[in-house]
Nucleic acid binder design. Structure first.
Length: 154
DNA sequence: GCCAACGTTGGC
DNA sequence: GCCAACGTTGGC
């Protein structure tokens, strides 16, 4: 089992939305970055655990944990001309973008803020706190997961 | 294949 | 809303 961090803007789709979905399950779609796509297509596996991160909002940070209940499949929104995520260069034969399905595991009582994450010297190597930090799907090591989870529950 | 222009991300 | 850091596009 591997660990990940997925970013979402809570104004668009936050952990509260996931909690209200039937079976608390939802496709994670609309990823339109190749590096993130490669992770979704090739490496994110059934049963993997994921930190649900809220970006571009008042309280930026990790809001809870979700698990992968369906591994990589062609993101249907790329084929839908009505969708904001439509990609005219994608075809059913050669899909360009991938989705996974996530299910809520745990909603933290308090957001583990980016500020607190940055302040912890044990996780200086996390992609989130390094330069760029623009990837919306990124791997988290076992050690980072333990540290972050411990902080969130403290 | 280079690289300037442009668009997007995301913290603040 | 600002702006730095990227990623993508397209002319050559």
């Amino acid at each position: 089992m591997q660990y990940w961090l997925f970013k979402s803007e809570p104004d668009v789709f936050g952990i509260a939305h996931l909690a209200n979905r039937p079976d608390q399950t939802e496709p994670w779609d609309g990823v339109r970055n190749y590096q993130a796509r490669n992770f979704l297509r090739d490496e994110v596996g059934l049963g993997d655990r994921v930190f649900f991160y809220h970006s571009s909002c008042k309280t930026v940070g990790i809001a809870g944990v979700v698990e992968i209940v369906r591994a990589g499949y062609a993101d249907p929104s790329q084929f839908d001309p009505e969708s904001d995520y439509y990609d005219p260069k994608a075809s059913r034969e050669k899909p360009r973008w991938y989705s996974v399905d996530v299910k809520l595991v745990e909603c933290f009582d308090h957001i583990l803020t980016l500020k607190d994450i940055k302040a912890n010297p044990h996780i200086r190597e996390l992609g989130l706190v390094k330069k760029g930090h623009r990837l919306s799907v990124m791997p988290v090591t076992h050690d980072e997961w333990q540290v972050l989870y411990g902080m969130a529950k403290a």
